[in-house]
Protein backbone atom coordinates (compact mmCIF):
# COMPACT_ATOMS: atom_id res chain seq x y z
CA UNK A 1 0.00 0.00 0.00
CA UNK A 2 2.77 2.41 0.86
CA UNK A 3 6.32 2.89 -0.28
CA UNK A 4 5.62 2.18 -3.97
CA UNK A 5 3.29 4.88 -5.15
CA UNK A 6 3.66 8.58 -4.58
CA UNK A 7 0.19 10.01 -4.78
CA UNK A 8 -1.05 13.50 -4.02
CA UNK A 9 -2.66 12.25 -0.81
CA UNK A 10 0.62 10.87 0.29
CA UNK A 11 2.45 14.10 -0.49
CA UNK A 12 -0.05 16.05 1.61
CA UNK A 13 0.30 13.54 4.42
CA UNK A 14 4.07 13.74 4.42
CA UNK A 15 3.96 17.53 4.25
CA UNK A 16 1.61 17.74 7.25
CA UNK A 17 3.69 15.32 9.29
CA UNK A 18 6.97 17.05 8.48
CA UNK A 19 5.58 20.51 9.10
CA UNK A 20 4.18 19.40 12.45
CA UNK A 21 7.45 17.73 13.38
CA UNK A 22 9.34 20.90 12.51
CA UNK A 23 7.11 22.93 14.84
CA UNK A 24 7.47 20.39 17.62
CA UNK A 25 11.22 20.35 17.23
CA UNK A 26 11.57 24.12 16.82
CA UNK A 27 12.08 24.79 20.56
CA UNK A 28 15.03 22.37 20.57
CA UNK A 29 16.51 23.92 17.46
CA UNK A 30 16.30 27.41 18.91
CA UNK A 31 17.58 26.20 22.27
CA UNK A 32 20.72 24.78 20.68
CA UNK A 33 21.20 27.78 18.44
CA UNK A 34 20.59 30.43 21.11
CA UNK A 35 22.87 28.67 23.60
CA UNK A 36 25.73 29.65 21.27
CA UNK A 37 24.75 33.22 20.60
CA UNK A 38 26.23 36.30 22.16
CA UNK A 39 23.87 38.82 23.75
CA UNK A 40 24.18 41.13 20.73
CA UNK A 41 23.23 38.33 18.29
CA UNK A 42 20.17 37.47 20.32
CA UNK A 43 18.88 41.01 20.16
CA UNK A 44 19.66 41.68 16.51
CA UNK A 45 18.77 38.54 14.60
CA UNK A 46 16.41 36.19 16.31
CA UNK A 47 15.57 34.15 13.22
CA UNK A 48 19.04 33.19 12.05
CA UNK A 49 19.98 29.86 13.51
CA UNK A 50 23.76 30.03 13.12
CA UNK A 51 25.35 32.27 15.75
CA UNK A 52 27.43 35.13 14.30
CA UNK A 53 29.77 35.20 17.25
CA UNK A 54 30.26 31.72 18.57
CA UNK A 55 29.69 32.06 22.30
CA UNK A 56 29.05 28.47 23.31
CA UNK A 57 32.04 28.47 25.65
CA UNK A 58 31.12 31.76 27.30
CA UNK A 59 27.49 30.77 27.78
CA UNK A 60 28.24 27.29 29.06
CA UNK A 61 30.86 28.68 31.48
CA UNK A 62 28.26 31.08 32.83
CA UNK A 63 25.70 28.32 33.15
CA UNK A 64 28.14 26.06 34.93
CA UNK A 65 29.46 28.67 37.37
CA UNK A 66 26.36 30.56 38.53
CA UNK A 67 24.66 27.44 39.78
CA UNK A 68 26.43 24.21 40.49
CA UNK A 69 25.07 22.12 37.65
CA UNK A 70 26.84 19.00 38.80
CA UNK A 71 25.16 19.25 42.21
CA UNK A 72 21.79 19.66 40.52
CA UNK A 73 22.23 16.70 38.22
CA UNK A 74 23.68 14.61 41.04
CA UNK A 75 20.71 15.48 43.25
CA UNK A 76 18.37 14.55 40.43
CA UNK A 77 20.06 11.18 40.00
CA UNK A 78 20.16 10.44 43.73
CA UNK A 79 16.54 11.40 44.31
CA UNK A 80 15.21 9.49 41.30
CA UNK A 81 17.29 6.42 42.10
CA UNK A 82 16.26 6.36 45.77
CA UNK A 83 12.61 6.85 44.91
CA UNK A 84 12.66 4.12 42.31
CA UNK A 85 14.47 1.60 44.51
CA UNK A 86 12.10 2.12 47.42
CA UNK A 87 9.03 2.08 45.22
CA UNK A 88 9.98 -1.22 43.63
CA UNK A 89 11.07 -2.84 46.90
CA UNK A 90 7.79 -1.95 48.54
CA UNK A 91 5.40 -2.37 45.63
CA UNK A 92 6.57 -5.73 44.29
CA UNK A 93 6.08 -7.83 47.46
CA UNK A 94 2.75 -6.13 48.07
CA UNK A 95 1.54 -6.68 44.51
CA UNK A 96 2.71 -10.29 44.65
CA UNK A 97 0.79 -10.90 47.87
CA UNK A 98 -2.32 -9.29 46.41
CA UNK A 99 -2.09 -11.23 43.18
CA UNK A 100 -1.08 -14.67 44.33
CA UNK A 101 -1.77 -15.12 48.04
CA UNK A 102 -5.12 -15.48 49.71
CA UNK A 103 -5.42 -13.20 52.70
CA UNK A 104 -8.21 -11.14 54.03
CA UNK A 105 -6.62 -7.73 53.56
CA UNK A 106 -6.11 -8.27 49.83
CA UNK A 107 -9.56 -6.99 49.02
CA UNK A 108 -9.21 -4.00 51.33
CA UNK A 109 -5.84 -3.28 49.73
CA UNK A 110 -7.47 -3.23 46.32
CA UNK A 111 -9.89 -0.55 47.50
CA UNK A 112 -7.05 1.45 49.03
CA UNK A 113 -5.03 1.19 45.84
CA UNK A 114 -7.92 2.40 43.71
CA UNK A 115 -8.43 5.30 46.11
CA UNK A 116 -4.74 6.03 46.19
CA UNK A 117 -4.58 6.23 42.39
CA UNK A 118 -6.80 9.30 42.66
CA UNK A 119 -4.61 11.27 45.03
CA UNK A 120 -1.68 13.22 43.58
CA UNK A 121 1.10 14.72 45.67
CA UNK A 122 -0.58 18.11 45.30
CA UNK A 123 -3.42 16.94 47.53
CA UNK A 124 -1.24 15.60 50.34
CA UNK A 125 1.46 18.26 50.20
CA UNK A 126 0.01 20.54 52.91
CA UNK A 127 -0.14 18.10 55.84
CA UNK A 128 3.12 16.45 54.80
CA UNK A 129 4.81 19.84 54.72
CA UNK A 130 3.46 20.70 58.15
CA UNK A 131 4.62 17.35 59.51
CA UNK A 132 8.07 17.59 57.94
CA UNK A 133 8.39 21.11 59.25
CA UNK A 134 7.57 19.94 62.79
CA UNK A 135 10.07 17.10 62.47
CA UNK A 136 12.63 19.58 61.11
CA UNK A 137 13.46 17.40 58.15
CA UNK A 138 12.85 19.98 55.42
CA UNK A 139 15.81 20.52 53.10
CA UNK A 140 16.98 16.94 52.97
CA UNK A 141 16.98 13.97 50.66
CA UNK A 142 14.57 12.41 53.13
CA UNK A 143 12.01 15.13 52.52
CA UNK A 144 12.38 14.77 48.76
CA UNK A 145 12.11 11.00 48.71
CA UNK A 146 9.88 9.86 51.58
CA UNK A 147 6.40 10.75 50.25
CA UNK A 148 7.10 8.87 47.01
CA UNK A 149 8.38 5.64 48.54
CA UNK A 150 4.87 4.30 48.19
CA UNK A 151 3.69 4.20 44.60
CA UNK A 152 0.09 3.11 44.36
CA UNK A 153 0.43 3.20 40.64
CA UNK A 154 3.39 0.84 40.86
CA UNK A 155 1.39 -1.62 42.95
CA UNK A 156 -1.43 -1.42 40.44
CA UNK A 157 0.85 -1.97 37.46
CA UNK A 158 2.70 -4.91 39.00
CA UNK A 159 -0.58 -6.39 40.19
CA UNK A 160 -1.91 -6.46 36.62
CA UNK A 161 1.31 -8.01 35.44
CA UNK A 162 1.61 -10.63 38.17
CA UNK A 163 -1.95 -11.79 37.65
CA UNK A 164 -0.90 -12.93 34.21
CA UNK A 165 1.92 -15.10 35.60
CA UNK A 166 0.53 -18.65 35.78
CA UNK A 167 -0.18 -20.00 39.27
CA UNK A 168 1.45 -23.28 38.29
CA UNK A 169 4.80 -21.55 38.06
CA UNK A 170 4.49 -20.47 41.68
CA UNK A 171 3.22 -23.85 42.83
CA UNK A 172 6.18 -25.48 41.10
CA UNK A 173 8.56 -23.08 42.87
CA UNK A 174 6.96 -23.92 46.22
CA UNK A 175 7.28 -27.64 45.53
CA UNK A 176 10.94 -27.01 44.73
CA UNK A 177 11.24 -25.67 48.26
CA UNK A 178 11.49 -21.94 47.71
CA UNK A 179 10.28 -19.50 50.37
CA UNK A 180 7.88 -16.73 49.36
CA UNK A 181 10.72 -14.21 49.29
CA UNK A 182 12.72 -16.67 47.22
CA UNK A 183 9.82 -16.93 44.79
CA UNK A 184 9.68 -13.16 44.46
CA UNK A 185 13.42 -12.89 43.94
CA UNK A 186 13.98 -15.83 41.70
CA UNK A 187 10.70 -16.36 39.86
CA UNK A 188 8.62 -13.20 39.88
CA UNK A 189 11.23 -10.49 39.36
CA UNK A 190 13.05 -12.21 36.48
CA UNK A 191 9.69 -12.65 34.75
CA UNK A 192 8.57 -9.11 35.45
CA UNK A 193 11.38 -7.19 33.73
CA UNK A 194 9.12 -5.63 31.10
CA UNK A 195 6.87 -4.27 33.84
CA UNK A 196 9.82 -3.11 35.92
CA UNK A 197 11.44 -1.26 33.01
CA UNK A 198 8.14 0.32 32.09
CA UNK A 199 7.65 1.44 35.66
CA UNK A 200 11.25 2.68 35.89
CA UNK A 201 10.71 4.92 32.88
CA UNK A 202 7.43 6.18 34.24
CA UNK A 203 8.87 6.86 37.69
CA UNK A 204 12.08 8.53 36.56
CA UNK A 205 10.35 10.79 34.04
CA UNK A 206 7.81 11.82 36.66
CA UNK A 207 10.26 12.57 39.44
CA UNK A 208 13.06 14.03 37.36
CA UNK A 209 10.56 16.56 36.03
CA UNK A 210 8.63 17.23 39.24
CA UNK A 211 8.78 20.79 40.44
CA UNK A 212 5.91 21.06 42.91
CA UNK A 213 7.21 19.01 45.83
CA UNK A 214 10.90 20.05 45.67
CA UNK A 215 9.76 23.68 45.49
CA UNK A 216 7.89 23.17 48.76
CA UNK A 217 10.42 21.28 50.84
CA UNK A 218 13.73 22.63 49.50
CA UNK A 219 14.85 26.17 50.03
CA UNK A 220 18.57 26.06 49.30
CA UNK A 221 20.79 24.95 46.49
CA UNK A 222 22.41 22.04 48.33
CA UNK A 223 19.44 19.75 47.75
CA UNK A 224 17.90 21.40 44.70
CA UNK A 225 16.75 19.07 41.94
CA UNK A 226 17.21 20.03 38.26
CA UNK A 227 13.86 21.85 37.76
CA UNK A 228 14.29 23.75 41.01
CA UNK A 229 17.90 24.60 40.20
CA UNK A 230 16.82 26.03 36.89
CA UNK A 231 14.35 28.28 38.71
CA UNK A 232 17.21 29.55 40.91
CA UNK A 233 19.35 30.09 37.87
CA UNK A 234 16.60 32.11 36.19
CA UNK A 235 16.25 34.22 39.30
CA UNK A 236 20.00 34.81 39.44
CA UNK A 237 20.16 35.78 35.75
CA UNK A 238 17.15 38.11 36.04
CA UNK A 239 15.78 36.29 33.04
CA UNK A 240 17.32 38.29 30.19
CA UNK A 241 20.65 36.62 29.47
CA UNK A 242 19.06 34.11 27.12
CA UNK A 243 22.37 32.75 25.88
CA UNK A 244 23.40 31.52 29.31
CA UNK A 245 19.84 30.54 30.13
CA UNK A 246 19.60 28.34 27.05
CA UNK A 247 22.98 26.81 27.84
CA UNK A 248 21.75 25.92 31.33
CA UNK A 249 18.50 24.61 29.88
CA UNK A 250 20.41 22.47 27.43
CA UNK A 251 22.57 20.97 30.18
CA UNK A 252 19.57 20.15 32.33
CA UNK A 253 17.35 18.80 29.57
CA UNK A 254 20.10 16.74 28.01
CA UNK A 255 20.31 13.67 30.31
CA UNK A 256 16.70 12.58 30.01
CA UNK A 257 16.43 13.46 26.31
CA UNK A 258 19.62 11.50 25.62
CA UNK A 259 18.27 8.56 27.60
CA UNK A 260 15.07 8.77 25.61
CA UNK A 261 16.85 8.90 22.26
CA UNK A 262 19.02 5.93 23.20
CA UNK A 263 16.21 3.79 24.51
CA UNK A 264 13.27 5.11 22.50
CA UNK A 265 11.66 1.78 21.92
CA UNK A 266 11.67 0.99 25.64
CA UNK A 267 10.30 4.45 26.41
CA UNK A 268 7.43 4.11 24.02
CA UNK A 269 6.69 0.57 25.19
CA UNK A 270 6.86 1.73 28.78
CA UNK A 271 4.50 4.64 28.24
CA UNK A 272 2.10 2.46 26.29
CA UNK A 273 2.12 -0.20 28.96
CA UNK A 274 1.82 2.13 31.94
CA UNK A 275 -0.58 4.33 30.03
CA UNK A 276 -3.01 1.72 28.86
CA UNK A 277 -3.10 -0.11 32.13
CA UNK A 278 -3.13 2.91 34.38
Amino acid sequence: MSAQTFTLGRAIRLFLLSFGALIFLAPYIFMISTAGKAQSDIFSSSLSLIPQHWSYIANFTKALTRVSMTTLLWNGVVVCALIFVFQVMIAIPCAYAMAKLKFRAARLMMVLVMLGLLVPIHATALPLYVAFDRMAVLNSYFALVAPFTISVFGIFLFLQFFRAIPDDLIHAARLDGMSELGIIGRVIVPNAWPAITAFAIFSVVAHWNDLYWPLIVISNQTYATPPLGLLYFRAAEAGDDYGALMAATLIITFPLVAAFLLAQKRFVEGITMTGLKG
Binding site: W208, N209, L245, V257, F260, Q264, I271
Partner: peptide
Protein backbone atom coordinates in the same frame (compact mmCIF):
# COMPACT_ATOMS: atom_id res chain seq x y z
CA UNK B 1 2.42 6.43 6.19
CA UNK B 2 5.10 3.84 5.54
CA UNK B 3 8.23 5.90 5.87
CA UNK B 4 9.56 7.96 8.74
CA UNK B 5 7.31 6.27 11.26
CA UNK B 6 9.80 6.14 14.09
CA UNK B 7 11.26 9.56 13.25
CA UNK B 8 7.87 11.24 13.51
CA UNK B 9 7.01 9.38 16.68
CA UNK B 10 10.30 10.50 18.22
CA UNK B 11 9.84 14.10 17.14
CA UNK B 12 6.38 14.41 18.62
CA UNK B 13 7.25 12.46 21.74
CA UNK B 14 10.42 14.38 22.59
CA UNK B 15 8.60 17.09 24.62
CA UNK B 16 7.17 14.41 26.92
CA UNK B 17 10.65 13.29 27.88
CA UNK B 18 11.98 16.82 28.29
CA UNK B 19 12.18 18.76 31.51
CA UNK B 20 9.13 21.00 31.34
CA UNK B 21 10.62 23.77 33.48
CA UNK B 22 13.58 23.94 31.10
CA UNK B 23 11.51 23.82 27.94
CA UNK B 24 9.18 26.46 29.39
CA UNK B 25 12.23 28.71 29.54
CA UNK B 26 12.86 28.06 25.86
CA UNK B 27 9.24 28.90 25.09
CA UNK B 28 9.61 32.10 27.06
CA UNK B 29 12.40 33.08 24.69
CA UNK B 30 10.40 31.96 21.63
Amino acid sequence: EGIGRSFFRTAYFLPVASLLVAMATVWQYL
